[in-house]
């Protein structure tokens, strides 16, 4: 007859699955809300660098993700675009992932409309080209030959925003929102290291730890990791803003926190049962 602690240690994983599902569904359905405390770190570094850019700077924003990582990266795209456009920084956007183009376009158009910015003057979406790192290298020498037309098929030669950019070196900063390969590492290797342009990154929380070494070396100047990074940025952008637009990252954080706590609770329970069992076995010896 198995004791309680034994049963607890070998709990059917389907029970864990059910509890996790409930801990996400309930807070979302009930619309819980929790405040986000901000601590200095890669998110604030990223914010500070963008904040320090003068109006009129050129930023390349690359949407290197697809719908499967939207929950984490789309909120970042919104917060970053809002910050950049509010500061009158010009955005040239593109995508190393085919599905990134339309996701990026959704963000750019909606933020641009809400702030009254003008396509081709304040921002442009160049679209997607295959090639990853190779493509970046080619952009290093000439962007207009890589992207002769934008996403909608208009010639980039006629666009005021493209007057000042011929190659990657003409950008003041490159930001890649990246869900994997090609993404941030490709930008670091093929653009940052080669042409000495500051690279900022946004990534899924899972890949964030592997980018820390790049932060340490300065190859990456700031990093938004996962929904937490997005919520940090969203919070930072909203500081001092009247009637901030509704965010997408902050509400999800509540559900995430609850589920997160539930997992920690499971780990604690697992250890209690493990230690209790060990003690019992030790007693028999």
């Amino acid at each position: 007859m198995a004791t309680f602690t034994e049963k607890l240690g070998n709990i059917d994983r389907r029970i864990i699955f059910t509890v996790i599902a409930l801990s996400v569904v309930i807070p979302l359905a009930m619309r819980f809300n929790l405040p986000i405390p901000i601590t200095p770190g890669p998110s604030t570094d990223m914010f500070d660098v963008v904040e320090a850019l003068p109006a009129g700077s050129m930023v390349l924003l690359s949407f290197d993700y697809d719908p499967s990582t939207m929950p984490e990266l789309q909120p970042m795209a919104f917060a970053l675009t809002q910050h950049l456009m509010r500061k009158d920084i010009k955005i040239v956007s593109m995508a190393l992932w085919p599905m990134g183009v339309s996701l990026g376009n959704e963000v750019l158009t909606s933020v641009s409309d809400s702030l009254g910015r003008e396509e081709y003057v304040d921002w442009v979406n160049l679209g997607y080209k295959t090639g990853g790192g190779v493509l970046i290298v080619r952009m290093g020498s000439n962007i207009k030959s890589v992207f002769p037309e934008d996403y909608d098929g208009n010639s980039v030669d006629d666009m005021p925003i493209m007057d000042h950019v011929n190659k990657l070196g003409d950008f003041d900063m490159i930001i890649s929102l990246s869900a994997g390969d090609p993404g941030v590492p490709a930008w670091i290797m093929m653009a940052g290291d080669r042409y000495d342009i500051p690279i900022g990154g946004g990534c899924t929380a899972v890949s964030a730890p592997q980018f820390y070494p790049y932060l340490g070396t300065g190859q990456l100047i700031g990093l938004l990791g996962g929904l937490k990074g997005a919520a940090d940025y969203e919070t930072l952008v909203r500081i001092g803003m009247e009637n901030p637009p509704p965010g997408t990252a902050i509400p999800g954080m509540a559900a995430q926190s609850v589920a997160h706590l539930v997992i920690m609770l499971f780990i604690i329970l697992g250890n209690i049962s493990y230690l209790a069992e060990k003690k019992k076995k030790g007693g028999v010896k």
Binding site: I11, R13, I16, F17, I20, A21, V24, D66, P67, S68, T69, M70, M99, A259, V262, I263, F266, I267, L269, G270, N271, Y274, L275
Partner: peptide, 25 residues
């Protein structure tokens, strides 16, 4: 795309069961 996102989100469950089982002192 939804099927991709669903498969990906299975990780939320697996990460919980893996953590429960593997993180023992």
């Amino acid at each position: 795309a939804p099927m991709s996102a669903t498969m990906f989100s299975l990780l939320a469950f697996f990460v919980a069961s893996a953590a429960f089982r593997a993180f023992r002192a």
